[in-house]
């Protein structure tokens, strides 16, 4: 039997919401696939689009960006809005690189949403399995 494709995902998680949500998923022992490699940053507004491009360049099949819920949850007032704008623009550019924009996923996950974190990872892994390995030209 052919081995199932295991996508590699880099997750940029803000410290206050998404990473805390991931911690809660852990504390609650909510299982999700191990395909995800987390990198915690202070705010989703810190995520420079070049980080995302670098992740694709280094072989990530998908990139997850996790921040606080809009509009008012951001610990730094509105970093999540800035992140939203940057990711939206970057998705348009990804097409030009021949990267399916579904490989970049933005999610708002609060510190109390451990369940949502686990669900998002599961869904994203499934989606990337369908999309197959990334080919950057």
């Amino acid at each position: 039997m052919a081995k199932r494709f295991e996508p590699k995902i880099v997750a940029f998680l803000c410290k206050w919401c998404a990473s805390a949500g991931a911690d809660l998923a852990g504390v609650s022992r909510l299982e999700y696939p191990p395909n995800i490699i987390p990198i915690t940053v202070p705010c989703s507004g810190r995520i420079d689009p070049q980080f995302i491009l670098q992740a694709f360049k280094e072989g990530a099949d998908g990139v997850l960006v996790g921040g606080c819920h809009t509009p008012g949850d951001c610990h730094y007032i509105n970093g999540n809005f800035k992140c939203f704008k940057r990711v939206t623009l970057l998705k348009k550019m990804l097409r030009q690189f021949g990267i399916d924009e579904r490989r970049l996923r933005l999610e708002w996950i609060s510190a109390t949403e451990g369940k949502k974190f686990a669900r998002v990872v599961k869904e994203f892994v499934e989606e990337l399995r369908k999309l197959g390995p990334i080919k950057v030209t």
Binding site: A25, G26, E31, Y32, P33, P38, T40, A118
Partner: peptide, 11 residues
């Protein structure tokens, strides 16, 4: 963080 974000969520 290899507990909350790793050992506790995988088998």
């Amino acid at each position: 963080n290899i507990r909350e974000q790793c050992s506790w969520v995988h088998t």
